[in-house]
Simulated scan of single mutants.
Amino acid sequence: MTGLGAVFRPQLAPERLRAVARVADEVGLEELWLWEDCFREGGISAAASALAWTERVRVGVGLLPVPLRNVAVTAMEAATLHRMFPGRAILGVGHGVQDWMGQVGARAESPLTLLREHLLALRALLGGERVTTEGRYVRLDDVALDWPPGQGVEVFAGATGPRSLRLAGEAADGTVLTASTPPDGVRRARRLIDEGRATAARADGHRVVVYLLAATGPDAGERLRAELAAEGDASVPDLGVAGDAAAVAKAVERLAEAGADTVVLQPTGDEPDPEGFVRFAAEEVRPLVA
């Protein structure tokens, strides 16, 4: 079955998260995803709060920019969430928006090298290993978590370009694709991810999560077109969806047929009713998705 989720966008004030998370839990939404966009809201603090306010919904962070964190800190925070809320936290990391990284003095000369080193060390630490490594960016000397997760933990990587998609297949357990990815883009991403998996002789599972920009309501088309234009995606075919539950479900299924395991509905930045959007996803769209 195709997984379905929704995004709590950081354009909303942090104090709005509690109400949205509780609605997601009440209506049976499978996954609620959060972003750590500079300079809005902290991903780990928001995820911990959402998990504490709810009982069953899985909470994803997509993505944590690795230039901002020592990998040991990422591992400690991720392990803490997984031990306190077993099976409910989803962690995604990425190399970050380079302009933002530059603003805080954390821009890496080779973002891909940094992401590779971070992924390898992070997965090893969360797997309970004791790690010593001397990389270009990641340096650890006999580091192990005192409280590693009690079960296997998936680490997702955000990826867009061919090299980062191959790296995700090689070094991550799953991939997060942005809302700028149409069905054909998902197919291409799957091929590149599989190339990376083959390079690393990976035979385990690899879940692909795709954001889908979605709008519903009387002004849905106008809001969708405005956001696509603002993101420079107005000319990309088959991108985003506006309309009722049937229209959104069809768009979800097109992404699933292209290779998405989970589709996360991303409201427009000016969505007037975030709680209603979550209800729409769970109560109206979910029953129509195979």
Rank of each mutant, 00 (worst) to 15 (best):
G3F: 07
L4I: 07
L4K: 03
F8P: 04
F8H: 10
R9Q: 07
L12Y: 13
A13I: 00
E15V: 03
R16D: 07
A19G: 02
R22V: 13
V23L: 03
A24S: 09
A24Y: 03
G28Q: 02
G28Y: 01
D37Y: 11
R40W: 13
A46R: 08
A50M: 11
A50G: 06
L51H: 11
A52H: 11
A52T: 12
T54P: 09
R56H: 15
G62L: 15
G62P: 03
L63Q: 12
L63T: 15
P65F: 11
P67G: 12
V73N: 06
A75F: 10
T80E: 13
T80A: 14
L81V: 12
M84S: 14
M84T: 13
M84Y: 09
M84H: 09
M84D: 05
P86V: 10
A89G: 04
I90V: 15
H95M: 12
G96K: 05
V97Q: 09
V97W: 11
G102F: 05
Q103V: 11
Q103A: 15
V104P: 07
G105V: 08
P111E: 03
P111T: 04
L114M: 14
E117D: 07
L120D: 11
L122D: 02
G127W: 00
E129R: 13
G135D: 07
D142W: 00
D142V: 01
A144S: 13
A144L: 04
L145K: 04
W147S: 06
P149I: 05
G152F: 00
E154R: 14
V155F: 09
T160C: 08
G161E: 13
P162A: 11
R163D: 14
A168V: 12
A168S: 15
G169F: 12
T175C: 15
T175Y: 12
V176N: 07
L177G: 08
S180M: 13
P182M: 08
P182R: 11
R187V: 15
R188D: 15
R191C: 06
L192W: 13
L192E: 14
I193G: 08
D194Y: 07
A201F: 01
R202Y: 04
H206Y: 08
V209T: 14
L212M: 09
A214W: 04
A215P: 08
G217L: 06
L224C: 05
R225Y: 01
L228K: 10
A230H: 10
A230W: 05
A230C: 03
G232V: 06
G232N: 08
G232A: 04
D233K: 02
D233S: 04
S235K: 09
G240V: 07
G243N: 03
D244I: 02
V248T: 14
A251P: 03
V252R: 02
R254M: 02
R254C: 01
R254E: 14
A260H: 06
A260D: 10
D261N: 09
V264R: 02
V264T: 09
V264M: 02
L265A: 01
P267T: 05
E271Y: 02
P274E: 01
E275G: 01
V278Q: 00
F280K: 00
A281P: 02
E283P: 00
E283N: 00
P287D: 00
V289P: 00
V289T: 02
